[in-house]
């Protein structure tokens, strides 16, 4: 059972925990995918009784979902629904080259397209369930750099503390279904990432 007293997400908050700690269950409960007791607020309103499609919480999965149509058509479909601008999001994530692709996207490319679609919904917050766990290191960095630039609250679940230290403003530790503690992330490991990135230069 997962029991969380209170968790405020106003920036990028990483929940770090081992397998089976209840991280995905926490996200599912917040997203409304599973039934839960308690209160979820988003954009200042109580969304606890709303279905996932009305909560205003964009949920990015660990295994990226294949775009149902050609990338640009899919993004336009989402943008039309939420009155957002595809070009702006595409530019922000640097995925111009993917727009005319239909299939054959790599896992990293698919995850960026998923993030673009999520961004187009103009959500109150993002929920991310180990979104970079299937990505190679370079794609992981590209994705996490995009997350850092979202300028929206993000509840980011990972089992990797280094990833949490790179991407998050606040790090919470989850064990046996409970948030044990949350600490402000004052460790800047950007230089370590840059050093690692230079290996590919």
């Amino acid at each position: 059972m997962v029991q969380v007293e209170r968790l405020e997400v106003n920036s990028v908050v990483a929940v770090v925990g081992r397998n089976g700690a209840g991280k995905t269950t926490l996200l599912d409960a917040v997203a409304g995918v599973i039934n839960a007791v308690g209160r979820v607020s988003a954009c200042g309103r109580d969304v606890s009784r709303l279905p996932p499609e009305k909560r205003g919480l964009a949920y990015v999965q660990s295994t990226p979902v294949d775009p149902p149509t050609r990338v640009d058509k899919f993004l336009k479909m989402v943008a039309r629904r939420h009155g957002s601008d595809v070009e702006e999001v595409v530019r922000k994530l640097g995925i111009e080259a993917l727009l005319t692709r239909r299939g054959g996207l790599s896992t990293g490319q698919r995850q960026l397209v998923n993030l673009a679609a999520a961004l187009l919904t103009r959500p109150c917050a993002f929920l991310m369930d180990e979104p970079a766990s299937h990505l190679d290191w370079i794609n992981k960095k590209v994705f996490n750099d995009a997350v850092k630039a979202l300028e929206r609250p993000v509840l980011y679940v990972t089992h990797d503390p280094f990833e949490a230290m790179y991407v998050a403003d606040v790090i919470c530790i989850m064990e046996r279904g409970r948030i044990m503690r949350c600490v402000e992330n004052r460790t800047d490991i950007t230089h370590i990432y840059k050093t690692a990135e230079s290996l590919w230069a």
Binding site: L57, V78, A118, L127
Partner: peptide, 11 residues
């Protein structure tokens, strides 16, 4: 693939 959760969260 948890595609349903993703698409529902897109509205």
């Amino acid at each position: 693939e948890r595609a349903e959760a993703f698409f529902r969260s897109l509205g």
